[in-house]
Amino acid sequence: MTEFTNTRANHLVDPFLQVWGWEIPVYLFLGGLVAGMMVIAGGAMFADRQRRAGSVLTLLPGLGLVLLSLGMGALFLDLEHKPFVWRLYTTFQPASPMSWGAWILIAVVPALLGALLLNVPAFLRRRFPALTALSEALCAQAAVVRAIAAANLVLGGLLGIYTGILLSALGARPLWNSAALGPLFLTSGLSSAAALAHLATRDRSESEQLARADQRFLQAELALIALFLIGLLTATQVHIRAATLLLGGPFTAVFWVGVVGLGIALPLFLQSLAAGQRIRPTPVGPLLVLAGSLLLRFVIVHAGQLSRWGPV
């Protein structure tokens, strides 16, 4: 007797689901980076640290607006029906992370603008002298400063964690079915924001503070990666199979060497050597953190699209 398997013979039965290219990882990276910048700037506003002359933290809101626009540009490029993007803003669906994300992306703009107005950069003051008076009026009201700081902290946290929840809510992709993904992306955003500020600052004590903060974020990120993998490995067979994409599968080397080794462990090690004054402070650590953070999004997005519930 000859037995035929006639299901799934038509390639159209399985839709092509690896539809996300470079745009989504880049957006997730820039969104996370801006989220981290908002949280750090918000925290500094509460501590009144950003008002120190020459502090790099004063640049974060303006830079955040630019990076957020680039990230949203990448997201826009990914949209299939670009002319209808405005429809996202005709409704709010509390059960949809994408709807949350669309509104959070709009809500962070005034928070960033408020933070920018508290510390208007010199070139903007020269071009728009009225901004100086507005900034001074805002800074004179402690409640306004606290409100802007709180808005940056809360909305930054939401933006950072939403980038992970956006993926983890997609049940069809087992690699993303982890509650650790949101905190992981938030922590990664915080570490990359601290690294970027660390790169840009010229103030020695601020540089040391940012390096210490970055080290804590990186340690937390390592712990969250461990939790992410443990969670998958102790779940269903489908999730275990998804985890093997990073544990022996095609993404093993890029994940462990690129993301964990070069993006987290080596910068941690270099920064601890620099803190102990065994090597001179180097921009290599922060640069590796930024590259590792971007790579994390690429690996998770691409590996996640390969993971599936059905037969491999």
């Binding site: 022996g248 095609p250 993404f251 093993t252 080397a253 462990w256 060497v257 080794g261 070069l262 080596l266």
Partner: peptide
Amino acid sequence: FGDEASLVIAFVIGT
């Protein structure tokens, strides 16, 4: 071990 793990081991030894 396979190709992917060998790259990770190479990274650890190289570092």
